[in-house]
Computed example of a mutant assay.
Amino acid sequence: MADDPAQPSEQERLSAVIASYGEAYSPFDAKMRDYMMRAFEPFFREGPCLQVGCAHGDQTSLLLDRFEDVTVVEGAPEFIEIARARVGGRARFVQGLVEDFETDERYETILFAHVLEHVVDPVVALRKLRDLLTPAGRLFLVVPNAEAASRRIAVKMSALTHLEALSPDDVAAGHRRVYRLDTLCRDTREAGLNIAHSGGIFFKPLANFQFNQLIGGPLISEAFMEGCYQLGLEHASFCASIYVVAERG
């Protein structure tokens, strides 16, 4: 079926949502990136690493602390400019959509964090990444969690109609869907990947903006944040993000 000329292209759609990410520093997002690396460290493979989607380059910096060989695929040239200024020449950047990415390189580690909820066809994107893995490589797939405690509270408040409803912030960020762990695992398996591990990152009782206002103050201490991280290891369905570590099927 031909594309509808009245509909924006994926590149145009991506450019339209960049403003929602802003330039403001988010203490909660920074902590989540640290927690993500902490959760994944036991499962990382040595060798070339591919990051799909870099935003402002914060996670890219963390990956470069862990891996010597990092390639970044990012659809937004604006984000590449920001991330490259942050990390210099330590990473290779490729501008384009992951579905169109072509290379002879194969990767031991692929990080696909908070991107799957944006793509047109998640199974197609995951099959592409499966083919970019080495035989022993691992894909680290992370998405926002529809069942996070904060979203459950939002439903009870009638701020959301149901757990998988797209919030105004979801729409502004260009999200097309919100995953539960079972639906994330479903799409992963449908793409021909085996799930080696799955879980959640950070028990989340508050919305992002509430954490951003309270982190570092008397109400949200480092001990409280650590407690939420540890509790999230036991209760994935209440976490801010859910993930799978997948291998080629």
Rank of each mutant, 00 (worst) to 15 (best):
M1K: 14
A2R: 15
D3L: 15
Q7M: 15
P8Y: 10
S9W: 08
S9T: 15
E10M: 12
E12F: 06
S15W: 04
Y21M: 07
E23H: 13
S26F: 02
S26C: 11
S26V: 07
D29W: 12
A30Y: 10
A30N: 13
A30G: 05
R33F: 10
Y35P: 00
P42L: 11
P42V: 10
R45F: 01
G53P: 01
C54V: 05
C54Y: 00
H56L: 14
H56I: 08
G57K: 01
T60F: 02
L63V: 06
L64G: 04
R66P: 06
R66Q: 13
E68N: 13
V70C: 03
V72F: 01
V73F: 01
G75F: 00
E78N: 07
E78S: 12
I82Q: 13
A83P: 05
R84T: 09
A85D: 14
R86Y: 03
G88Y: 05
G88K: 08
G89R: 09
F93Y: 06
Q95I: 10
Q95K: 11
V98C: 07
E99H: 10
D100Y: 02
F101N: 03
E102H: 07
E102L: 07
D104F: 07
E105N: 07
E105W: 05
R106I: 03
Y107D: 02
T109K: 01
T109P: 04
T109H: 03
L111A: 10
A113P: 02
A113F: 09
A113C: 14
L116S: 03
E117H: 03
D121H: 13
P122Q: 04
P122T: 03
V124I: 13
A125M: 08
R127H: 06
R127P: 04
K128C: 08
L129F: 00
D131N: 15
D131T: 13
L132E: 01
L133S: 07
T134P: 08
T134G: 09
T134Y: 06
F140N: 00
F140V: 04
F140A: 00
A146S: 09
E147D: 13
S150N: 11
R152K: 14
R152N: 05
I153H: 10
K156F: 09
M157P: 06
T161D: 15
A165C: 07
L166E: 04
P168S: 09
A172S: 12
A172D: 11
H175Y: 04
R176M: 12
R177T: 05
L181W: 01
D182I: 04
D182G: 06
L184S: 00
L193G: 01
L193H: 01
N194I: 12
I195K: 02
G199V: 06
I201S: 01
F202N: 06
F202A: 09
F203D: 05
L206W: 06
A207K: 10
G217S: 11
P218F: 10
L219G: 07
I220C: 12
A223S: 12
M225K: 04
Q230F: 08
G232T: 02
H235F: 14
H235L: 13
F238K: 02
A240M: 09
S241H: 13
E247Y: 05
R248N: 11
G249A: 15
